[in-house]
Design a protein around this nucleic acid. Structure first.
Lengths: 153, 153
DNA sequence: GTTTATGCAAAGGCTTTGCATTTCA
DNA sequence: TGAAATGCAAAGCCTTTGCATAAAC
């Protein structure tokens, strides 16, 4: 999908979500959505704030947090708490479902996919009568690079 | 396993860990370990602090946080960040490996086991050259109870 | 014209840090 | 005895909240 196409797509989704839930379609909300979808990878609120300030947007941290809540509610953004206390976000639409592998030493985050997770979701839903909406699988350990540095045999 | 047996067991593990890493075997550290292993389920620092204060232990929050770091390092405790910002802990030794199902509506946390997760860990280790140490799988959605309340058909 | 959203700044809550004192090795 | 650990209180950091102003409907 072309980038511009995707932008139009998520804007439409967000717009419909806002209308359906009686929220207003403010320019700030769409500016934030665009900024989120203009970059790949994870980001935190401070980084997003910095990027938007640099582009001369007049936006506050409070609005960023509020808008992230809305975007999470309509599944356009996912939130993670990998390492410390500060939350990491990533865009979620039209990306293959993926999970994360995190190195305890260097803090690096890699992505992976495994279809067996979908099977686990199905089983949990059936056995526990649970309406599964999302999941997050984190695998922690030592990445290849850090292992090699340790034993430079 | 009898409770007293388990206590002795984890105390030995902790003791050896401390010696191996050049840490001191202080009474506070073992008092905290015992308190952690005296209860089931999840707890946060404030709750643990309250319980120990009630039992007239002279212990500080700082030491609780420091000791949790040690206990996590030797795999006697796991830390989670389910909902808000405050971390949840649980004892980790001699308990069947399990993961968590979290209801978005009532905040309830249930446990489940699925052997396919071990298979995923193995695959990630092999394919990515990753030395897997831990994992955490959270499944989010609506639990049976909350579904039933919604539609009391 | 109402009501909601925004920006700013201040408050809040969890966690970490600094330092004098205690205590383990 | 010397280095590490403790308790207490203060500081830090991320996030939320309150309120006057601005803007969507």
């Amino acid at each position: 999908m072309v980038v511009a196409e995707q932008q139009a797509n998520v804007q439409r989704i967000f717009s419909e979500y806002l209308e359906l839930h009686g929220h207003r379609r403010t320019p700030e909300r769409f500016a934030i959505l665009n900024e989120v979808y203009a970059h790949d990878g994870h980001f935190d609120i401070e980084r997003l704030y910095g990027r938007m300030k640099q582009k001369k947007y007049r936006v506050s941290r409070a609005t960023l947090y509020n808008t992230m809540d809305l975007l999470m509610d309509c599944d356009l953004v996912r939130r993670h708490r990998f390492g410390g206390t500060q939350a990491q976000f990533e865009k979620a639409h039209a990306f293959r479902q993926h999970d994360h592998v995190i190195c305890e030493r260097c803090g690096g985050v890699q992505e992976f996919c495994d279809p067996r997770i979908q099977q686990i979701r199905n089983t949990v839903g059936e056995v526990m009568g649970f309406d599964v909406r999302h999941h997050a699988l984190e695998i922690h350990g030592i990445c290849r690079n850090c292992k090699d540095k340790q034993r430079p045999s």
